[in-house]
Amino acid sequence: MQKTNLLCMALAMFAIACSKSDTDTPVVNPPEDTTTVDVKTGVYTLVNLAADTTATSGAAAKAFYYSLEDQKTIPASQVQTANWDIAFTGTYNSTILINNGKAKYSPGYGGPGLGGIYLVKDAAIDAEYYVGPQKPFKTIPARRLFDSAFAHVKTVPVSDDQLLTNDGIGLDYFGPSTDGWAFYDFYGLQFPDANPDSVAHICYSMPRTLIIKTAKGHYAKMVIYSIYKGAPELPTRSNKPGFVTFKYAIQKDGSKQLDLK
């Protein structure tokens, strides 16, 4: 925990050092979304879901709670209910946490959530772009790789006790040394010849599928295409972060069958 605090502090100081124009943006709570969508078993793509759109590379973004079951944003006041399934937290909302009432470090601790999360690594897909932790990619992974990685997952590949509950899935080998769903290029390593102002501190999504067990206990899979507005395949610093674009499939019959169309 203290390590995290130090990292946060370092990042915060970096933010203070880097930010050119700090403007006080009033915190506006989005009005509570009362419309209900009947989300059936199937595949859905959500575009430009607005998380913390005022986030900087320095400080942790405001947590953003989302319901895959109902396709809506859930206010933070309901964190200990079964109303949300995934939370986007941390730097650029890049750490995905789930809702589990028994897990001390889940935001849903104390609540009724039954959630879990697992990152599927697909060796064949990884071989196309991935070199190693904190190393630039061979090439920026194309969108078809995301779709292939997603399609390859036809069922939940692990038992429930292998799903993470306390830990989230975040940036690849960034902070904690674990596999992640995105490469955070701190120094602009991916494009060493480019102006670091435009290519450093970029979050490149990776074609890795996340298994999500929802708060109510249904299984889902998702790939995150981008955290930038408009989901550019090749993001730069000029792209606005805090807008998540992802595809997910949810199975509502309680089974682990995720070969959904």
Binding site: S77, Q78, Q80, T81, Y109, G110, G111
Partner: peptide, 11 residues
């Protein structure tokens, strides 16, 4: 309320 759940909301 079980204090160790630190409930911020109740349903």
């Amino acid at each position: 309320l079980p204090y160790y759940y630190y409930l911020t909301t109740i349903q």
